[in-house]
């Protein structure tokens, strides 16, 4: 049985190609929300920060973990709201176009 690290490395490499392939199809028009949306997606760091704070024992660990949770939460909510606001605009601009 190979080490779990190898398995994760395989997964990571495939995820990299997935990211590349998915993004390749996004038109320039949507590059801003794409950047903002991928910014939101690395907000999953919040889950790691929760884990770090949840397993912290000493005071310095707790402080660092707490700061990490705050920053992670900002990343998630800010990233989501910004992306949603931008995409809402594109929704509206489509509506204004009216029937062809």
């Amino acid at each position: 049985m190979i080490s779990v690290y190898w398995a994760v490395l395989y997964v990571a490499v495939l995820a990299g190609f997935t990211g590349y392939e998915v993004i390749r199809r996004v038109p320039v028009l949507l590059h801003t929300p794409l950047m903002s949306g991928s910014n939101f997606i690395h907000g999953i760091v919040l889950v790691g920060a929760m884990f770090a704070l949840g397993t912290a024992t000493t005071l310095s660990e707790q402080i660092l973990g707490f700061v990490a949770v705050i920053m992670g939460a900002m990343n998630v909510t800010g990233g989501y709201v910004v992306t949603e606001r931008i995409l809402e605009i594109f929704d509206r601009s489509k509506a204004k176009q009216g029937p062809p």
Binding site: T18, G19, I23, S38, I41, H42, I44
Partner: peptide, 8 residues
């Protein structure tokens, strides 16, 4: 998720 964003 991190690798996805890294590649993108």
């Amino acid at each position: 998720a991190g690798t996805l964003v890294g590649a993108a």
